[in-house]
Design a binder for these strands. Structure first.
Lengths: 221, 221
DNA sequence: TTCGATTGTTATGGCGCCCTAAGAACCGGT
DNA sequence: ACCGGTTCTTAGGGCGCCATAACAATCGAA
């Protein structure tokens, strides 16, 4: 029961996150995984076959893969490490949101369970990372509150920011600049026509313009 | 100018440390390196040839290797990371000496320069790690004070512990138990005959018995 | 329903780093 | 000067993970 290699961990994480973020149920395809990891579909195909052999996924030929319990468990462990590291590096070492993500992407594969546990303790077992994403427990529980995207709220609606997608550093900075961080209160004022920006009042205070692509990355509750 | 692979870093570190700890001048042999890294001499031979090609060492066939400036620089960077991590994990996360060493052995290859710099800053740019080993600067300066081993002191001599070798977890705990940590004052009382233990008064207080092998791991000034 | 485009798979090879086996160079003793 | 033992190097193979190329299955449009 050795720890899976970094490559295997990356694949499992990708499969898990693709399953999370896709509206549609069912298997994750080879090409989705390949794109997420920036490898060829041939490489992904080989690796998914291997993950099946290792018992982490069920691979149905020409359909895709679905995580087994063991695979989900392994994926959540990596995600737990990632988010604990992000939180620690941001709050205890004052690193910026974008630095933190890159750093955690590497270190998540190399911190021991003991260190992860110490970090969690030191942070008081937080439930969310700085972007608002839930931190799985050691047992593999994840709180994932139902959420809506800011882009889908009607004019006049108010809500609280739950989390923001952290795939793009520039977008992250853009949102942070405008106060769109977890726990911010937002009120949708109006949608400009023809795919224009959305006017949003943030924290009962300033009004900012949020382009649709950015609004899609903000999840509210 | 990519970062060398973890394997390359491990070899460079080993060559550097073998050069440090050996009394004799001159090249480091293939088998010394092989033993230090627990690989076969064949593997070491191949890798040393490769390090030569990369410009990190000069390899003279059947003689051994010596670090180039570039190799020494790379080795010191790894050692810097290792010792900063040890210091950080011990003082800020309360991990024990032995846990800390294993953890740093892995993480030293994966922390970014930015993170290493943040850690150094957070710690106030310490000059030594918890075992008393000097922490190289970014530029590659190392303070290495002349030192003698506790095992070599004559009866009646007094000195201050500078550093202790950290290769063996059990030994480390043994020494820590007896107060033989950096900055402890020691007075040699007597050597038992036939390779018996050395009686040492620690911090003008308790008297402990130190077997010769343990005494060799304690460096005093 | 047939054919081209799309998507997935298999085959094969490269690269890094390890191994074992075998051979070459060097050492000390006689 | 030779011979046996030690040390080092070379040769060849394995494993993990990536790639490219070629082939197979599937989908959808006419």
């Amino acid at each position: 029961m050795d720890r899976p290699s970094p490559a295997v961990q990356d694949y499992l994480k990708a499969v898990y996150q693709l399953g999370e973020s896709s509206e549609t149920e069912g298997p994750i395809t080879t090409s989705q995984v390949a794109e997420a990891l920036a490898v060829t579909t041939a490489s992904a195909s080989n690796m998914l076959k291997k993950l099946d052999a290792l018992g982490y996924v069920v691979h149905v030929k020409r359909q895709g893969v679905e995580l087994t319990d063991s695979g989900r468990q392994a994926a959540l462990e990596v995600i737990r490490h990632h988010r604990l590291l992000e939180t620690y590096l941001a709050t205890r070492l004052g690193m910026s949101w974008d630095e933190v993500h890159r750093e955690a992407e590497v270190l998540e594969h190399h911190v021991s369970e003991a260190l992860a546990a110490r970090i969690a303790e030191e942070l008081g077992h937080p439930e969310r990372d700085p972007h608002g994403h839930p931190i799985p427990t050691i047992g593999g529980q994840v709180a994932s509150p139902p959420s809506q995207r800011l882009s889908e709220l009607p004019d006049g609606a108010t809500a609280v920011v739950g989390r923001v997608d952290d795939h793009d550093d520039a977008l992250l900075r853009f949102l942070a600049d405008r106060g769109l961080v977890p726990d911010a209160r937002v009120e949708v004022l109006e949608h400009a026509p023809f795919g224009g920006p959305i006017s949003v009042r943030v924290d009962e205070d300033r009004v900012v313009e949020v382009p649709p692509e950015a609004a899609r990355a903000v999840h509210v509750e």
